[in-house]
């Protein structure tokens, strides 16, 4: 009815699906790590501003503006 079985093709299919899943998982892990790093960095910046401390980037910008005004 549906043709002869081809288990070699099925094996190849499973190997390729495993490879694709691995690549997908790896990509997801990298993106997740990058997002987590970004969130930690912005969280640290927020805490410093709350404590009245300036982040290094903010200090640099203010120094530049200060020089420009002067």
């Amino acid at each position: 009815m549906c043709g002869p079985a081809d288990f070699a093709a099925l094996d190849l299919c499973l190997v390729r699906l495993t490879a694709l899943s691995t690549v997908g998982l790896a990509t997801y892990s990298v993106c997740k790590t990058a997002a987590l790093h970004r969130r930690l960095r912005s969280g640290r910046k927020g805490k410093m501003e709350k404590a009245g401390l300036k982040s290094p980037e903010t200090s640099l910008v203010e120094t530049r503006h200060g020089c420009a005004d002067a």
Binding site: M1, C2, A5, F7, A8, A9, L10, L12, C13, L17
Partner: peptide, 15 residues
């Protein structure tokens, strides 16, 4: 790439 000829038919009807 993932589904070469014969793989789907084998999976559905023989497995």
């Amino acid at each position: 790439f993932a589904f070469p000829k014969g793989s789907i038919t084998t999976l559905m009807h023989d497995v």
